[in-house]
């Protein structure tokens, strides 16, 4: 203890207080000048930001998932206010908030506010033939680079789970060799839609009862050769639909959900059972 005290006494006498003063004055002076300069420049260079950006940002879902293509919700809010983005690019913001944002921006959003969920438009999986055996990194995106993936069908789910990896809500799982979306967990953020290298994942209205689980554009005979599950373009669904909501386009049925009455007749009549329930648990 005594040693320490004597050390301080010795050093105290050797400190050159004049030098300390100059150091403090110089460092403090530079800091003061720079501080004043910063204040001045921030006054001069003030950028006026639109107050609506903050209001819109508060109403967005705030998940910062990036599915809209912007760096987080703040970037999306800025693009919305500038009119560069469309509110329908965000699938997560609640319907009430979307209408509120529409009011702030003075745009009509009525057409886009129906809640949607994602479905996988392929039910081939293990029933679809492979054209080669893939032994690389287990990821659809890398498999796609090798001759368009292992499936014989151009639009067949490879089941390697790139969509499973990106889904923030663990709503997707691969069963029977193809991806399934859990309709209760899906919040329609759209990350899987962007990731799937074959663009097999699509949005359907949450209220819809049925969807077409095939994306092929081949003729029925070609599908028969490759896949035991795929659509064979027989047109029975189109003939049986009472409201004319189903039409074959490029050899695959397309459902117009604005006309669909959820009768379920197409699902019953389909010989390949490729029209399926969106909510299988609730049937």
């Amino acid at each position: 203890m005594l040693n320490i005290l004597s050390f301080f006494e010795e050093t105290a006498t050797t400190i050159d207080w004049g030098k300390v003063g100059i150091s403090v004055a110089i460092a403090g002076g530079i800091a003061l000048v720079l501080g004043l300069l910063i204040i001045g420049i921030s006054r001069l260079c003030q950028v006026k930001e639109d107050p609506r950006i903050n209001e819109v940002n508060d109403l967005l879902a705030g998940a910062n998932c990036g599915a809209c293509g912007y760096a987080g919700c703040a970037g999306f809010a800025k693009a919305l206010v500038e009119g560069k983005a469309d509110i329908s690019a965000c699938g997560q913001t609640s319907k009430a908030n979307v209408i509120e944002i529409g009011n702030i921006l003075g745009i009509s959003v009525s057409g886009n506010t129906e809640e949607t969920i994602a479905v996988v438009a392929c039910a081939g999986g293990n029933l679809c033939a492979d054209k080669y055996q893939y032994q690389g990194y287990g990821n659809c995106v890398s498999q796609q680079l090798l001759a368009g993936g292992k499936k014989a069908c151009e639009t067949g789910c490879m089941g390697a789970g790139s969509c499973v990896d990106v889904c923030p809500y663990t709503a997707i799982e691969v069963r029977d060799g193809y991806a399934h979306v859990d309709p209760d967990l899906c919040r329609s953020c759209g990350l899987c839609i962007q990731t799937c290298p074959k663009s097999l994942i699509k949005r359907v209205p949450k209220s819809a009862k049925v969807y077409v689980a095939c994306s092929t554009n081949c003729r029925g005979k070609d599908v028969m050769n490759k896949c035991k599950a795929g659509c064979i373009s027989c047109g029975i669904c189109e003939k049986n639909c009472p409201t004319g909501a189903i039409h074959l386009v490029n050899n695959v049925p397309i459902i117009d959900y604005s006309k669909c009455t959820n009768c379920g007749l197409c699902l019953e009549k389909c010989p390949r059972k490729i029209i399926r329930y969106v909510h299988p648990d609730k049937q």
Partner: peptide, 11 residues
């Protein structure tokens, strides 16, 4: 401080 100022001027 210089970078801070330049950032504001750039913005």
């Amino acid at each position: 401080s210089l970078v801070q100022m330049l950032e504001m001027i750039l913005k």
